[in-house]
Design a protein around this nucleic acid. Structure first.
Lengths: 126, 126
DNA sequence: TCTACATTTGCAAATGTGTTGCAATAATAA
DNA sequence: TTATTATTGCAACACATTTGCAAATGTAGA
């Protein structure tokens, strides 16, 4: 059975407090003393399996992780994500729902909707 | 100005004939003699810039490329893509349009809509 | 509380994707 | 045909992520 470890607790707390989705590298850089780089990856995998966080692949192919907010009631991540091409930040746009249809010979398990361009911060600076 | 080269011609033809989106690695493996690995990446970049193909990031973070079908008339790739978790294939679902809204303080330049799960082929085999 | 054991961790090394610099090659305009 | 410049190959790099294995640690049950 799953164990409570410091790495897991701290990483989950960090993700929950973060405004934007965070990458494994960011987590490791801001918690150098906490644990090894490899452990960060393994903790993130476990948190995803436990439905505590969800994974977003940004348009550069790098994984980012965000806390699940409405997952305690219903587990779905069919909201939009925004991947900024300049600052590389990934933001959940949870209020903007997406509508789509799929041919019925596909079995859809997960949904990844990502927009890219410039986020409000970078748009201001340009 | 852009030049016609064998690598470019063969790679574009290969992508056009392919049912599914293909990765740089796949292209290189099936055309070992054609050109270097690096050239595959560079040719793909050029083809994307010329709007001949479009790039899809699959849920593993790997880039895949597919031919643009309706781009001669209108250049937009806001259709769904399906990323199979078993065989890793990426398919364009061009007939299934997606509707969404975004806060107006974001500047959207590109759109990546990917579903994952099991494709028809893998669904049959299971 | 103590013990046994499965889970978690650190470290080193490997894999895979994508990029860069530079000199050599080849397409094309003139 | 020749000059120009895009394209290529090669070697090396950067970075994200994974794997194997032995050591450490959390926790269920005695």
């Amino acid at each position: 059975m799953a164990r409570k470890t410091e790495a897991k607790r701290v990483i989950l707390e960090y993700i929950r407090k973060s405004e934007k989705a965070v990458s494994p590298a960011e987590i490791h850089h801001s918690h150098k003393e906490l644990c090894d780089r490899v452990t960060v990856y393994r903790v993130l995998d476990r948190l995803v399996n436990e439905h505590k966080i969800h994974r977003i692949v940004n348009t550069d192919g790098v994984a980012n992780y965000a806390a699940c907010h409405s997952c305690s009631t219903m587990h779905q991540h069919d909201h939009l994500h925004f991947s900024c091409e300049r600052c590389k930040s990934v933001t959940c746009l949870e209020n903007d729902r997406v509508e789509f249809s799929v041919p019925n010979n596909y079995e859809v398990k997960e949904v990844f909707f990502t927009l890219s361009g410039l986020c409000p911060d970078c748009l201001n600076k340009s």
